[in-house]
Amino acid sequence: TETRTFDSEEEAKKAQKEAEKQGRTVTITRRDDRWEVRFD
């Protein structure tokens, strides 16, 4: 599991799309003013 933090939802969604192309499961969580993206 890898976790990355982004400043914008746009960036988080971009990372999510990339990871899903690779067949990974992605979870996006809102953390205050940041977006946390978890790759499984």
Rank of each mutant, 00 (worst) to 15 (best):
residue 21 K to A: 15
residue 11 E to W: 01
residue 1 T to P: 12
residue 36 E to F: 05
residue 10 E to R: 04
residue 15 A to M: 10
residue 22 Q to H: 13
residue 3 T to R: 07
residue 29 T to A: 06
residue 22 Q to G: 09
residue 39 F to T: 09
residue 8 S to E: 06
residue 6 F to W: 03
residue 24 R to P: 02
residue 11 E to G: 07
residue 5 T to V: 15
residue 19 A to L: 15
residue 40 D to A: 11
residue 35 W to H: 01
residue 37 V to E: 02
residue 30 R to I: 11
residue 10 E to Y: 08
residue 12 A to E: 00
residue 17 K to N: 10
residue 9 E to T: 01
residue 9 E to H: 05
residue 2 E to M: 07
residue 14 K to V: 12
residue 38 R to H: 14
residue 3 T to S: 09
residue 29 T to H: 07
residue 2 E to K: 11
residue 34 R to Q: 14
residue 11 E to M: 07
residue 16 Q to M: 15
residue 36 E to L: 05
residue 17 K to M: 14
residue 1 T to N: 12
residue 39 F to P: 05
residue 35 W to L: 02
residue 28 I to P: 01
residue 17 K to A: 15
residue 25 T to P: 07
residue 2 E to A: 11
residue 20 E to Q: 10
residue 38 R to M: 10
residue 5 T to P: 04
residue 11 E to N: 05
residue 30 R to F: 08
residue 20 E to F: 05
residue 31 R to Q: 12
residue 2 E to H: 13
residue 24 R to D: 12
residue 18 E to Q: 09
residue 24 R to K: 15
residue 1 T to Y: 15
residue 1 T to L: 12
residue 33 D to Q: 05
residue 6 F to V: 06
residue 16 Q to V: 14
residue 34 R to F: 14
residue 31 R to M: 14
residue 26 V to Y: 00
residue 6 F to K: 02
residue 19 A to V: 05
residue 39 F to Y: 13
residue 25 T to S: 13
residue 12 A to I: 02
residue 26 V to W: 00
residue 24 R to H: 15
residue 19 A to Y: 13
residue 21 K to M: 14
residue 9 E to L: 13
residue 35 W to K: 00
residue 14 K to Y: 07
residue 25 T to W: 02
residue 20 E to V: 09
residue 25 T to F: 03
residue 29 T to Y: 00
residue 5 T to Y: 15
residue 10 E to H: 06
residue 20 E to Y: 04
residue 11 E to I: 04
residue 21 K to I: 11
residue 6 F to T: 03
residue 1 T to M: 13
residue 3 T to P: 09
residue 27 T to V: 13
residue 15 A to S: 06
residue 5 T to A: 09
residue 7 D to N: 06
residue 27 T to N: 06
residue 21 K to G: 13
residue 17 K to I: 14
residue 12 A to W: 01
residue 34 R to I: 12
residue 18 E to V: 09
residue 40 D to Q: 11
residue 5 T to G: 06
residue 3 T to D: 07
residue 13 K to V: 14
residue 23 G to C: 07
residue 22 Q to P: 04
residue 35 W to S: 01
residue 14 K to L: 14
residue 33 D to L: 02
residue 15 A to D: 03
residue 30 R to A: 10
residue 15 A to F: 14
residue 38 R to L: 11
residue 35 W to T: 01
residue 17 K to S: 13
residue 38 R to F: 07
residue 13 K to F: 10
residue 29 T to V: 13
residue 18 E to A: 10
residue 16 Q to A: 15
residue 19 A to H: 06
residue 16 Q to Y: 09
residue 25 T to A: 11
residue 29 T to K: 06
residue 1 T to R: 10
residue 25 T to N: 12
residue 35 W to N: 01
residue 11 E to Q: 08
residue 3 T to Y: 07
residue 31 R to Y: 08
residue 22 Q to A: 14
residue 13 K to R: 12
residue 3 T to Q: 08
residue 37 V to D: 02
residue 4 R to L: 15
residue 30 R to G: 07
residue 21 K to H: 11
residue 10 E to V: 07
residue 32 D to Y: 02
residue 40 D to G: 11
residue 29 T to I: 11
residue 22 Q to F: 05
residue 2 E to W: 02
residue 19 A to S: 06
residue 20 E to K: 07
residue 4 R to W: 10
residue 19 A to E: 08
residue 26 V to N: 01
residue 40 D to M: 09
residue 22 Q to I: 11
residue 11 E to Y: 02
residue 33 D to T: 03
residue 36 E to S: 00
residue 22 Q to E: 14
residue 27 T to E: 09
residue 32 D to G: 15
residue 32 D to P: 03
residue 5 T to F: 15
residue 3 T to K: 09
residue 25 T to H: 15
residue 39 F to N: 05
residue 10 E to M: 08
residue 24 R to I: 15
residue 29 T to R: 05
residue 14 K to F: 09
residue 32 D to F: 03
residue 7 D to G: 07
residue 23 G to V: 02
residue 26 V to F: 00
residue 13 K to A: 09
residue 25 T to I: 13
residue 23 G to N: 06
residue 9 E to V: 06
residue 4 R to I: 15
residue 18 E to S: 07
residue 16 Q to T: 07
residue 10 E to L: 07
residue 9 E to P: 04
residue 39 F to E: 10
residue 30 R to Q: 14
residue 8 S to N: 10
residue 19 A to W: 10
residue 20 E to S: 08
residue 26 V to E: 02
residue 31 R to N: 13
residue 23 G to P: 01
residue 7 D to W: 10
residue 38 R to G: 07
residue 37 V to M: 03
residue 15 A to G: 03
residue 12 A to M: 05
residue 32 D to E: 12
residue 30 R to Y: 05
residue 21 K to P: 03
residue 2 E to Q: 12
residue 29 T to F: 00
residue 30 R to K: 15
residue 11 E to P: 01
residue 33 D to C: 05
residue 31 R to H: 14
residue 40 D to E: 15
residue 27 T to H: 07
residue 4 R to N: 08
residue 18 E to R: 07
residue 34 R to A: 12
residue 40 D to H: 10
residue 2 E to D: 11
residue 37 V to G: 03
residue 2 E to Y: 02
residue 9 E to R: 00
residue 32 D to V: 05
residue 6 F to H: 03
residue 24 R to W: 05
residue 12 A to D: 00
residue 33 D to R: 02
residue 10 E to T: 04
residue 28 I to Y: 00
residue 7 D to A: 07
residue 16 Q to D: 02
residue 35 W to R: 00
residue 6 F to R: 01
residue 29 T to S: 10
residue 3 T to F: 09
residue 23 G to R: 03
residue 40 D to K: 05
residue 40 D to V: 11
residue 31 R to G: 06
residue 3 T to A: 09
residue 4 R to M: 15
residue 6 F to M: 04
residue 9 E to M: 07
residue 23 G to F: 03
residue 19 A to P: 01
residue 8 S to A: 04
residue 7 D to Q: 06
residue 35 W to F: 07
residue 30 R to S: 08
residue 27 T to M: 01
residue 12 A to S: 03
residue 16 Q to P: 01
residue 1 T to F: 15
residue 26 V to G: 11
residue 22 Q to M: 14
residue 10 E to G: 06
residue 20 E to W: 05
residue 35 W to G: 01
residue 16 Q to C: 11
residue 28 I to C: 05
residue 40 D to S: 10
residue 26 V to P: 05
residue 10 E to P: 04
residue 14 K to W: 08
residue 33 D to H: 06
residue 31 R to T: 12
residue 20 E to I: 11
residue 20 E to R: 07
residue 23 G to M: 04
residue 23 G to D: 04
residue 15 A to H: 10
residue 23 G to Y: 03
residue 26 V to H: 00
residue 11 E to R: 03
residue 18 E to K: 08
residue 38 R to Q: 14
residue 12 A to R: 00
residue 24 R to E: 08
residue 14 K to Q: 15
residue 9 E to D: 04
residue 7 D to H: 06
residue 2 E to I: 14
residue 6 F to G: 01
residue 3 T to I: 14
residue 37 V to L: 06
residue 36 E to Q: 04
residue 22 Q to W: 05
residue 12 A to P: 00
residue 32 D to S: 05
residue 5 T to W: 15
residue 6 F to L: 04
residue 29 T to W: 00
residue 22 Q to T: 11
residue 39 F to D: 09
residue 5 T to E: 12
residue 24 R to Q: 14
residue 7 D to K: 04
residue 19 A to F: 13
residue 6 F to Y: 13
residue 24 R to M: 15
residue 39 F to G: 05
residue 21 K to E: 13
residue 31 R to I: 15
residue 37 V to C: 03
residue 17 K to F: 12
residue 38 R to K: 13
residue 39 F to M: 13
residue 6 F to P: 02
residue 25 T to V: 13
residue 28 I to E: 02
residue 28 I to G: 01
residue 38 R to D: 08
residue 23 G to Q: 04
residue 39 F to R: 02
residue 23 G to W: 01
residue 23 G to I: 02
residue 8 S to F: 04
residue 5 T to N: 10
residue 4 R to D: 07
residue 4 R to T: 11
residue 39 F to C: 05
residue 23 G to A: 04
residue 37 V to R: 00
residue 34 R to S: 12
residue 33 D to P: 03
residue 35 W to M: 02
residue 18 E to G: 05
residue 37 V to N: 01
residue 6 F to A: 03
residue 5 T to I: 15
residue 24 R to T: 08
residue 28 I to L: 01
residue 13 K to N: 10
residue 25 T to M: 08
residue 18 E to T: 08
residue 12 A to G: 02
residue 6 F to Q: 02
residue 1 T to E: 12
residue 38 R to Y: 05
residue 10 E to A: 09
residue 33 D to M: 03
residue 13 K to S: 08
residue 22 Q to Y: 04
residue 19 A to D: 04
residue 27 T to W: 00
residue 18 E to F: 04
residue 20 E to A: 11
residue 20 E to T: 08
residue 34 R to Y: 14
residue 37 V to F: 00
residue 40 D to T: 10
residue 22 Q to K: 11
residue 36 E to A: 01
residue 8 S to I: 03
residue 27 T to L: 01
residue 8 S to T: 15
residue 2 E to P: 09
residue 6 F to S: 02
residue 34 R to W: 11
residue 1 T to D: 13
residue 14 K to G: 08
residue 27 T to C: 06
residue 9 E to A: 05
residue 13 K to Y: 10
residue 35 W to P: 01
residue 9 E to Y: 13
residue 9 E to K: 02
residue 5 T to S: 13
residue 7 D to V: 06
residue 18 E to C: 10
residue 24 R to L: 15
residue 12 A to L: 04
residue 27 T to A: 07
residue 9 E to N: 02
residue 32 D to R: 03
residue 34 R to N: 09
residue 36 E to T: 02
residue 32 D to N: 12
residue 36 E to V: 07
residue 21 K to F: 08
